[in-house]
Design a binder for these strands. Structure first.
Lengths: 253, 253
DNA sequence: TTTTATTTGTCCGTATGTATA
DNA sequence: GTATACATACGGACAAATAAA
C-alpha cells in the first residue's frame, strides 16, 4: 500500500462520543462502507490489502477480516483469494409498482438504457400464457425474446407475450422502438399498469448466462408479470430473468 | 407401469377441434400439467416413466421428453436420472403487502406453522440497522436469529432487529410465543405494517444451508424489510433468507 | 457385496412440413 | 421455383445413475 492509498482512508475510527458501545470491527466496517459509499473506493477496484487496512486503523488484521466479512455478506465487496477484495457494483434498485417501466427506471438513475430483440415469433398460447392473458389456449400470441442493458451491462433477459390479434407484428415494432412502452403505444395503448408480479429465484441456465454475460450457476431473479390496459384487459405478460448481483427489487407498501 | 397407473392419464390428447395448430409435445405437456393440477399426480410422487407416458399417448418418447422439459423449466417437475421424474411441491405463494405476516400466510394455506429461536442478543445498532429503525447508530437493539417452518419444512431463516429500549427481552418473549406478531403484541403493538421490502437473490452459505436443510449452492431469496407501527415509527427490521425452491413472492399492484 | 432391471440422459439417424433467402 | 435452414416427430442404441433383488 502506498502512502497515497492510505490517505484515502479516514484518519480515525470515529471518536468515542458517537461510537460508544460499538464493537471495533463494526466501526471498521462502517468506515469502509462509508468510504465505498463516498466513492473513495470505486466499484470494480480493489480495497487495500487486509494488512494495510489493519495498519491504517491500528487494529489487528482479524478485526479487519471480521469487518470485511459483514460487507461481503451484504454484497458490497467480494473477496478473491490470492487476488484481493473487490468493490462490487452497487445494485440497481428496481421498484415494483403499478407503473413499473424498465426504461424509466434505468434512465432515472442516469444510466443509458439499451434493449435488443433476439427473436420474435407468433405461436399458439399454452395453458399458462392463455390464463395470464385471459384468452383461450391456442390463441395466437406474439412471443418476444429480449435482452435489456443499463450502460451496456446486461441487466435482464426476458420473454414477453402479447395477443397477436390486437398487436399484429409486435416483434417488428419492438425491434424498431426497442421499448415495450413504445410498442404498446404504437398500437394505441398509452396507459397500462402492472397487475401482478410473481418473484422467484433460480440458477441461470447456459442460454441465459450467455445472454446476460455471466458465468453459469449464478443466481437470477425471475419476475413473472401481467400488465393490463385501462379497461383491465391483459395486454402483456412476461417472464424476465434479472442478474441477481446487479439489481435489488424494492416493494414499497 | 401397471394398468391402474395408465388409467390415471386422460385417454386422448384433446380433439383436433381445440388443438389445431398446437404442436404434439405441447399438447402432451398441457395434459401432464392438467393431470398434476388436478391432483392425479400428487407432489412428491413420481410421474410414470417416459416410455409409459409415450405409450399411453401413442407418441414417441422424445416427444414426451420435450414436453417434460418445459414442465421442468417451469419448476413443476424434477427429473432424477435412474430414478424417475418427480412432481415438485407447489411453491408457496408469499404475498408482499402492508400486512405481510409469515404465520398468517402459512396458516392460510392450511399448513402448520413452526418457528424456532436460534439465538438472541442485545447489541449496538450499526449504521444500516440504525438507519432502518430511525435510531442513532450505537443504540441498543435486540437481534433475533430465527428459522421458520411450514409443515416441518424450513421455509426461511432470518435476522430481526427491534429497538431494545421499547422491546426489552424481545428474545425471551419470542422464544415463548414463536411469532413476531405475538411478540410485538406482548409489548402493546397490536397494529404494525410493512413499510418497505427489498428483494435480492443469492446463493445460500453453509450456515443457512444447514438451517434450511438444503444443499449449499442453492439459490435463496433475501428479503430486507422494515415494519412500522400505527404512528409510522419503525418497530422491526429484518433480513430473511427464503429457500427459493419453496416459495414465490407475489406482489399485487 | 454383486447383479440385474429400471429409468433418465445423450447420441446417432431419418423423414416431414414450414418458413426464409 | 429452388435451395437452405429450422422445428417437429419418430426410431433406435447406449451410457449413467439409481433401485431392487
Amino acid at each position: 500500500m502506498t502512502t497515497r492509498d492510505r490517505e484515502k482512508l479516514p484518519k480515525s475510527l470515529g471518536d468515542d462520543e458517537t461510537s460508544t458501545g460499538v464493537t471495533l470491527w463494526r466501526r471498521v466496517a462502517d468506515e469502509l462502507e462509508r468510504a465505498i459509499a463516498a466513492g473513495t473506493f470505486k466499484s470494480g477496484t480493489k480495497l487495500p490489502a487486509e494488512n494495510d487496512i489493519a495498519a491504517r486503523f491500528g487494529v489487528n488484521r482479524h478485526t479487519v477480516r471480521r469487518a470485511i466479512a459483514t460487507l461481503t455478506e451484504r454484497g458490497l465487496v467480494r473477496a478473491e483469494r490470492g487476488s484481493g477484495t473487490y468493490v462490487e457494483a452497487q445494485r440497481l434498485a428496481y421498484p415494483i409498482h403499478k407503473r413499473t417501466r424498465f426504461s424509466e427506471i434505468i434512465a432515472g438513475t442516469g444510466r443509458t438504457v439499451g434493449g435488443r430483440l433476439i427473436a420474435s415469433v407468433v405461436e399458439a398460447a399454452d395453458t399458462e400464457i392463455a390464463k395470464r392473458l385471459r384468452v383461450k389456449p391456442g390463441t395466437l400470441v406474439s412471443r418476444l425474446e429480449t435482452v435489456r442493458h443499463a450502460d451496456r451491462i446486461p441487466i435482464s433477459t426476458g420473454t414477453a407475450w402479447l395477443p397477436a390479434q390486437r398487436f399484429p407484428d409486435a416483434g417488428e415494432v419492438y425491434a424498431g422502438v426497442r421499448s415495450m412502452t413504445k410498442t404498446l403505444a404504437h398500437f394505441g395503448v398509452h396507459q397500462y399498469s402492472r397487475k401482478r408480479t410473481q418473484i422467484t429465484a433460480a440458477m441461470v441456465d447456459a442460454t441465459d448466462a450467455a445472454r446476460l454475460e455471466i458465468i453459469p450457476g449464478r443466481p437470477i431473479l425471475c419476475l413473472d408479470s401481467v400488465d393490463v390496459d385501462a379497461d383491465d384487459v391483459p395486454v402483456l405478460t412476461s417472464h424476465s430473468r434479472f442478474v441477481a448481483d446487479r439489481i435489488s427489487l424494492v416493494v414499497e407498501t
